[in-house]
């Protein structure tokens, strides 16, 4: 065999090796691309599935004037707002402080009817506070109950420290501050006599599709977003 043909054999072998390596890399890239593609499709499909299953937009709540709420503003007002709230919920307290003045003024002007529906989604304090609210509502009427409701949220920071929230004495003295007769409401607050009402109200809210607090409906439509977004939407609607 001549020197020349040995050299060309080596070159051919080297070329074949390079070709094989090229095909190897090609196969590898196709494989990686294919697997990445499958995983991306899985993520996109899962994302769409999660979005389709978000039922927070479906709340079929009864209109204002239900047995589980406190209503301000005249019947037949042009706008209606329903607020599901929990006295132990930080965003409810936040929403309250952002919306109270606007909603109260608009209700007094006859522009909106607002129903506050306290429910107990979070802790035992949620139940005790909603119970205390109901006791005051029954004993002292809606005006004092509204003031009490406001005071409970104003004292949220103190209640937020523990699962126990505000103690019974504080619940009673706040009722007194709101204008209720402390002796008349003390038993009901200490014995949690309206727990059945709280349970029913919470059950009714769940049945209506409420999944968390605060849940706000404007003219029957759920208002989505953070408490700041909700407050802005309400301000725009009733302002």
């Amino acid at each position: 065999m001549s020197k020349k043909s040995a050299q060309s054999n080596r070159e051919r072998a080297a070329a074949a090796l390079r070709e094989q390596q090229r095909q190897e890399a090609r196969r590898r890239n196709l494989m990686v691309g294919g697997v990445v593609g499958v995983l991306v499709v899985a993520v996109v499909a899962g994302f769409l599935w999660m979005r389709a299953n978000d039922s927070s937009g479906d709340i079929a709540a009864p209109a204002a004037g239900s047995e589980f709420g406190l209503t301000i503003g005249p019947e037949g007002a042009p706008r209606e707002v329903i607020v599901y709230e929990d006295f132990h919920c930080v965003h409810c307290a936040d929403l309250e402080s952002r919306t109270r003045d606007d909603l109260t003024a608009a209700a007094e002007a006859g522009d909106v009817r607002v129903e506050y529906r306290p429910i107990a989604f979070l802790t035992q304090y949620s139940v005790r506070a909603a119970n205390a609210f109901k006791v005051v509502l029954d004993e002292s009427g809606p005006d004092i109950a509204k003031t009490y409701h406001d005071l409970l949220f104003e004292n949220y920071d103190e209640a937020s420290g523990s699962e126990d929230g505000l103690d019974d004495d504080t619940l009673v003295s706040l009722a007194g501050e709101a204008g209720a007769d402390e002796d008349a409401v003390r038993d009901g607050i200490e014995q949690v006599t309206s727990q059945g009402w709280v349970d029913d109200a919470t059950k009714a809210a769940e049945d209506a599709g409420v999944q968390g607090t605060p849940s706000v409906l404007l003219d029957g439509e759920p208002v989505s977003g953070s408490s700041e977004d909700i407050a802005n939407s309400l301000a725009k609607a009733v302002g």
Partner: peptide, 18 residues
């Protein structure tokens, strides 16, 4: 920001599983 809260809430569990 609120506009990202929902997409991220939908995406994270799926991403975790994958």
């Amino acid at each position: 920001p609120e506009s990202l809260v929902e997409p991220v809430g939908y995406l994270l569990p799926v991403l975790e599983v994958v």
